[in-house]
Design a protein around this nucleic acid. Structure first.
Lengths: 159, 159
DNA sequence: CGCTTTTTGCTGCAGTGCAACATGAAACTT
DNA sequence: AAGTTTCATGTTGCACTGCAGCAAAAAGCG
């Protein structure tokens, strides 16, 4: 598929979720990491939302039977982030499932729709170069930058 | 002085602080806004730190006599941000005094030294253009982006 | 001076994030 | 298979973030 940056409002949710879970399983297998039920549930909660969720929102969406404590969810999120399956949206104090298979090191730009709340990821090559140049010009040695762009996504604009 | 992006460790703190306060007074005067004692104290706390401070750190640094409630500090910070005197560092949940006189709308990049904690601001013109291009290429209408770059500043690298 | 607007104080609360310790489950060793 | 180590989760508790809602005080204005 051509990876739509923003999922269409009517896309096949089931399929994109299960594909992402499959990818997560593969990812963990190759890294000898364990995608436990807890971790999988947290990832699924994020996948089925397609929006950034706060920690307590995640808790609310998990099976009510054994409502996990905040620390449990934070630990699962930490694991998922370390394995590139989840990103944190700093400007929202929230988390999104990563639907790309972008390699670990390369910079990603987060596009955050202010209307529908969806988050898209785009590679940040050109912007990264400009940033590096600006940083080094003042003697600063940059590490991986954080870029989050609020705005309006194509689907919302179309309406 | 040529506005060093990062203040030298041995720079004249008194002078740069009082200059920034003077600028804040002028800024508020022209906008018919009131730089009250509370607001001034919060700004001074940030200026004398040259590092991002959390809300409670600010409280701790204010005169102990009348320790303000968190909401009071948040309101002062809100005012200072609206008037371009303070920035929020999203990735740190903290605030820094703005030592530049950059016009309201133009994009600023925050360089955050991971060793000494200092924050520098550089204009983000080139990076902003690259970001806009990347965003629009996927049908996204961007607003003012957030860019924060962790790294090592020149002074820390020199050591 | 009265009136309005702005600012600050006060109480309370929901959300964020993690430390420290205990328990349980899985993997590895011999 | 039993024991040991490692990893994951549960439990308790707490510090910080951020703000709502209302009350009191201060500043500006006719």
């Amino acid at each position: 598929m051509s990876p739509a940056i923003f999922p269409a409002p009517d896309h096949d949710h089931e399929r994109c979720t299960s594909a992402a879970i499959a990818h997560a399983e593969a990812q963990c297998a190759t890294r000898a990491q364990r995608l436990t039920p807890m971790r999988r549930q947290v990832l699924e909660a994020l996948l089925t939302s397609h929006q950034p969720l706060g920690a307590y929102e995640i808790i609310d969406r998990l099976q009510q039977k054994n409502r996990p404590a905040p620390i449990t969810v934070y630990r699962a999120l930490e694991f998922l982030r370390e394995n590139g399956l989840v990103h944190r949206i700093e400007s929202r104090n929230a988390f999104v499932a990563c639907v790309h298979n972008h390699g670990g090191g390369d910079l990603v730009i987060f596009l955050i729709c202010e209307r529908c709340g969806a988050v898209g990821e785009v590679p940040g090559g050109a912007a990264a170069e400009a940033l590096k140049a600006s940083s080094r010009a003042v003697g600063f040695s940059p590490n991986s930058p954080l870029i989050e762009v609020p705005g309006i996504c194509a689907h919302c604009r179309a309406r």
